[in-house]
Measured scan of single mutants.
Amino acid sequence: GLEHMADEEKLPPGWEKRMERSSGRVYYFNHITNASQWERPSG
């Protein structure tokens, strides 16, 4: 619901949600550090 939507907005600075086109899996990418990970970043 709306709570989940708001929660997605609160990623740490630099992080954004991305989708891997080949598999459709969602991952997280940090455009500041060029880091990427499957787990939702905390902090």
Rank of each mutant, 00 (worst) to 15 (best):
Y28R: 00
R25E: 07
K17S: 06
S42Q: 10
Y27W: 06
E3T: 13
H31N: 14
H31A: 11
S22G: 12
R40P: 11
R40S: 09
S22T: 12
F29R: 02
K10M: 13
Y27K: 03
G43T: 12
V26Y: 14
T33R: 04
S22Q: 11
L11W: 02
Y27E: 05
L2Q: 13
A6C: 15
E39R: 04
Q37K: 03
R40V: 09
R40W: 08
W38A: 06
M19A: 06
E39V: 05
W38G: 05
N34W: 05
A6I: 12
Y28L: 00
E8A: 10
Y27N: 02
E16P: 00
S23M: 04
V26L: 07
S23Y: 03
W38D: 08
P12K: 01
R25S: 04
V26Q: 06
D7F: 07
M5A: 15
I32Y: 10
Y27V: 03
G14H: 08
E39P: 04
E20M: 08
N30K: 00
S23F: 03
Q37D: 02
E9K: 07
S22H: 13
P13K: 07
H31M: 11
L2M: 13
G14K: 01
H4F: 13
W38S: 07
Y28I: 00
G1T: 11
G1H: 13
R25K: 13
R40G: 02
G24P: 01
E8P: 09
S42M: 11
Y28S: 00
R25W: 02
L2W: 15
W15F: 02
P13Q: 08
E16M: 06
W38F: 11
S36Q: 10
A35M: 14
S42N: 10
E3C: 11
M5F: 13
K10R: 12
V26S: 06
Y28V: 00
K10A: 13
G14A: 04
A6G: 11
S36M: 15
S42L: 11
P41K: 00
W38K: 05
D7A: 10
R18I: 07
S22R: 11
N34F: 07
S22L: 10
P13I: 08
P12Q: 02
S36E: 09
R25P: 02
G1I: 12
G14E: 05
E3P: 13
R25N: 07
L2V: 12
L11H: 01
S42W: 07
L2I: 14
W15A: 00
S22N: 12
E20W: 06
P41I: 02
A35E: 15
R18D: 01
Y28Q: 00
W15G: 00
W38N: 07
W38P: 05
S36W: 15
G43M: 15
N34K: 14
N30E: 02
S22I: 13
E16D: 03
W38E: 07
D7V: 10
N30D: 04
M19L: 14
E9T: 08
P13G: 05
G24K: 07
G43R: 09
T33F: 04
Y27C: 07
E8M: 06
R25D: 06
V26W: 12
K17M: 12
R18M: 08
G14L: 02
W15T: 00
L11Y: 02
I32T: 07
S36I: 15
G24Y: 01
P41Y: 03
R25G: 03
W38R: 06
R25T: 05
K10E: 15
A6V: 13
P41D: 01
S23A: 03
S23P: 01
L2N: 12
R40N: 07
E9L: 08
P12T: 02
E8G: 09
G14I: 01
D7P: 10
K17W: 03
E3Y: 01
R25Y: 04
A6S: 14
T33M: 04
S42T: 14
E8K: 08
E16K: 03
Y27I: 05
P41H: 00
S36N: 06
N30I: 01
P13S: 07
G14P: 09
R25H: 05
E20P: 02
F29T: 03
A35P: 02
H31I: 15
E16G: 04
E3W: 00
K10H: 11
S22F: 06
N30L: 02
E20V: 10
P13H: 09
G24I: 01
R18K: 10
R40K: 14
S42F: 09
V26M: 08
V26A: 07
I32Q: 08
D7Q: 10
S36H: 12
